[in-house]
């Protein structure tokens, strides 16, 4: 690619990304009533999306070979247990990450 082609490619990627970010706000601008259906979606989509994001983080884990996803699963278990114990964000995130970094070097 030439420099101009590279700039066009980057600009096009920016345009598409901006479109996905702004669309809901363009459809329902300030002052316009948000339909009940979208208010409902606004409440129920997010918890589902967090499930999707967790799966997304694990998408390249191979459960059939290598360490069989054990470092990931054990570290997630550690995160859950630390969360239930401490009920905060910081301890489970640090604890789970340290646990993972140790496990991938051992397994």
């Amino acid at each position: 690619m030439t420099i101009v082609q590279q700039i066009i490619t980057i600009a096009v990627a920016v345009a598409a990304t901006v479109l996905t970010r702004f669309l809901p706000y363009v459809l329902f601008p300030e002052g316009k009533k948000i339909p009940d259906f979208f208010l409902y979606l606004g409440k129920v989509l997010a918890p589902a999306v967090f499930g999707l994001l967790v799966v997304y983080c694990l998408k390249n884990v191979d459960f059939a070979a290598g360490s069989h996803g054990l470092p990931e699963l054990l570290s997630i278990l550690a995160v859950i247990l630390l969360y239930l114990w401490k009920k905060n964000m910081f301890v489970p995130i640090v604890g789970g990450t340290v646990c993972y970094m140790v496990l991938i070097r051992l397994m």
């Binding site: 129920v44 989509l45 918890p47």
Partner: peptide
């Protein structure tokens, strides 16, 4: 993995807020 851990924690927060977990389970 810090990102995975953060999403798990936020999912847990959502999980403990509801009793039937329909959204969370649908997503997962």
């Amino acid at each position: 993995f810090v990102m995975t851990a953060m999403f798990v924690v936020i999912l847990m927060q959502q999980w403990t807020k509801s009793r039937r977990h329909v959204s969370e389970l649908t997503g997962l």
